[in-house]
């Protein structure tokens, strides 16, 4: 399973300050640490970045100077996205845009996806609020896939995101998301790719139980075939490796966690 490192987010104070000052040091340190822990892609969440349209390009370059991996460009700012895509080094894989959805305001993202031949996260929410169950998420996914096809985007460039909700407030949604992962894959052959923002599940929970919720939830999702998770690699890597052993995807050795 692909881990998309979540730590470079404008929500974190240290990252935000480094972004504002264009200080490469902390950004590169965090990017490298995530890569070494097992991230195959680094998320760069710069927020709406109004008036800072050059920020994503700076982030992409800064990250790829030290990490041989593609970047997940996480912003709603069209102009910033395009600047970031222009400088992205595709040698280690296609960039991933985070994200489009069934909200018409997010449709232009598909234009960029097609134009730069990159991957895109399609969040299965519309303008009308949060999806109620697996069926509603799947219906939205079908609409999104149809629209993407109109733009000429290959299905294997799309990561469907069922939108993980908080266990603390909407407990019944956790299992619905797990079911959705299975249903999404059945929408296409080869199966559609899927992604989650994992830590949403434990949002609002006490810090000491967050990682427990995250890891166990992830186990269920991987079992159903999850392709990628936006998460903290240091937190989930033992879960990912262990599930790989239990699902017979890697060969067991006593030191499997060290590999």
């Amino acid at each position: 399973m692909l881990i998309i490192g979540e730590k470079l987010s404008i929500i974190a104070k240290r990252v935000r300050e480094a972004m504002m000052r264009r200080d490469k040091g902390p950004i590169q340190e965090i990017a490298k640490a995530q890569f070494e822990k097992g991230a195959g892609m680094i998320d760069a969440n710069i927020g709406p970045a109004e008036g800072a349209e050059d920020l994503m390009a700076w982030m992409v370059t800064t990250i790829q100077e030290v990490v041989p991996a593609p970047v997940c460009l996480d912003t709603t700012n069209y102009e910033a996205l395009e600047q970031g895509l222009k400088v992205h080094n595709n040698e280690w894989g296609r960039p991933l845009i985070n994200s489009t959805s069934n909200d018409p305001e997010r449709f232009p993202i598909l234009e960029l996806t097609a134009k730069y031949n990159c991957d895109v996260i399609a969040l299965t929410v519309g303008k009308g609020g949060l999806p109620a169950d697996a069926e509603e998420r799947t219906n939205i996914a079908v609409e999104l896939m149809g629209r993407a096809a109109e733009y000429g985007i290959p299905m294997e460039h799309i990561y469907l995101d069922p939108l993980v909700l908080q266990a603390a407030t909407t407990q019944d949604q956790a299992l619905k998301v797990v079911q959705t992962i299975k249903m999404f894959q059945e929408l296409n052959d080869p199966p559609m790719k899927t992604v989650v923002g994992l830590s949403n599940i434990s949002n609002g929970c006490p810090k000491h139980i967050r990682h427990i919720l995250n890891e166990h939830f992830l186990t269920l999702l991987i079992y159903e075939g999850l392709t990628a998770a936006i998460a903290d690699p240091a937190e989930i890597i033992t879960t990912v490796k262990t599930v790989d052993i239990l699902m017979n995807k890697t060969l067991y050795a006593h030191s499997y966690l060290e590999m």
Binding site: L251, A253, E258, M259
Partner: peptide, 9 residues
């Protein structure tokens, strides 16, 4: 096979 892998590691 598992010990073979372990030794290589």
């Amino acid at each position: 096979i598992n010990l073979s892998k372990q030794l290589n590691i």
